[in-house]
Amino acid sequence: MGEMHAKPAERLRPRGQDDDGWFDALYPHLHRVACVAAPADVDPDDLVQDALVNYLQLDNPDTVRSPRAFLTTAIVNLASNERRSWSRRHSAMARLGPASQSPNQFPSDLADLFALPPRERAVLYLHHVDGLPYDEVAELVGCTAAAARKAAERGRSRLATTLAEEGNQ
């Protein structure tokens, strides 16, 4: 129980990781997942940082088996929260008057990706781009393999119209 008296700076470092190398190695993956999952108007690195704060504030970060999975799940969940709060703000604004601007400034071929829920985007990315099997994807985003597969299927079918149109060109 000597751990409890450790200085904060030491407490905030995973056991057995004396330097920050653990995070340097994780960051590129986390940043890309955040880019994929974050709503268009949210800075991906803000999500990475928020997830990291949650992790560092755990009473026992050491008990987290996989910081990579913890942080990835946290980023996807935070992105989902952002999306929900964006919808709430958006409907509140709609009641007030005309929309002054669209928060989505991305080209239309990414706009339909942005229409998918953050978790579906993350699953599609981890499976199709990072090439991870569904059981690994599931561990990263915090669900079962079946749910990850279902999320990917649902995402693909929502995009199907667009993809089919492009395939015909």
Partner: peptide, 24 residues
């Protein structure tokens, strides 16, 4: 789909991990 996901993943350049960690 893969290309588009790649583009999405690259939509903002990565920052400095040490800065992100320090801020957190």
């Amino acid at each position: 789909l893969e290309d588009r996901l790649e583009r999405l993943a690259d939509r903002t350049p990565p920052g400095n991990p040490a800065d992100v960690l320090d801020a957190a």
